[in-house]
Amino acid sequence: MIFIQYPACGTCQKAKKWLAEEGVAVELRHIVDEAPTEAELTEWIGRSGLPVKKFFNTSGVLYKELALKDKLPTMTEAEQIALLATNGKLVKRPLLVSDTFVLVGFKPEEWAKAVK
């Protein structure tokens, strides 16, 4: 599994601690230094079963600066994914990616079900 995080993010730190306590081995990936590609995002969004909108970091500064709340509804799914791939800070974090699931954001009960 790949744990995609921004190390300064408090939620990412909680998720990383939870994974360690649960004994879940993960490969760490910095979301800004190694931003998800368009191909990865397309695959992960499909695997997650979630709409593209759920992959946006809506509380992020960049999201607000770009006024994406108003722009996203007029964009196609492909345009949204291409935009997400331009900057890791646009992507909601943390992400937990396996061969069978993709989890966005940290909800311990959801993660527990998925990794057991």
Rank of each mutant, 00 (worst) to 15 (best):
K89F: 15
L19G: 07
E79N: 12
V26H: 04
L41E: 03
A114V: 14
V52L: 06
K113M: 09
K64S: 08
V61P: 05
P73E: 13
V104S: 00
L50S: 07
K113E: 12
E34R: 12
R29M: 02
P36W: 01
V32Q: 09
L72H: 11
K69H: 07
N57I: 06
F3A: 00
T37E: 05
I81N: 00
V61F: 07
I4E: 05
A114D: 12
A8S: 15
F55M: 06
L96Q: 06
P108I: 07
K89E: 08
A35T: 09
A67E: 09
F101Y: 11
T100E: 14
P51M: 14
W111P: 08
V102W: 03
D33F: 05
A8F: 11
E40F: 09
W18F: 12
L83M: 09
T11P: 05
E22R: 13
Q13I: 11
L95F: 08
A85V: 01
C12H: 00
L41T: 10
S98R: 14
E38A: 10
T74N: 13
V115N: 09
P51W: 13
K14C: 03
G60H: 04
L50C: 03
N87R: 08
K71R: 15
M1N: 10
V102S: 08
K71Q: 10
Y6C: 08
I45G: 07
K54D: 10
T86M: 06
I4P: 03
G105N: 02
G88Q: 02
T76N: 09
G23W: 10
P36A: 12
G10I: 07
Y6K: 14
K107Q: 14
A20T: 01
L50H: 11
L103E: 10
F101A: 15
N87C: 12
K92W: 06
K113N: 10
Q5F: 00
A112D: 11
W44R: 03
A8L: 12
V24Q: 11
A39R: 02
R47H: 14
D70E: 14
P36H: 00
M75C: 10
E38Q: 15
E79R: 11
L19W: 06
A67C: 02
K89C: 08
A20P: 00
K64M: 10
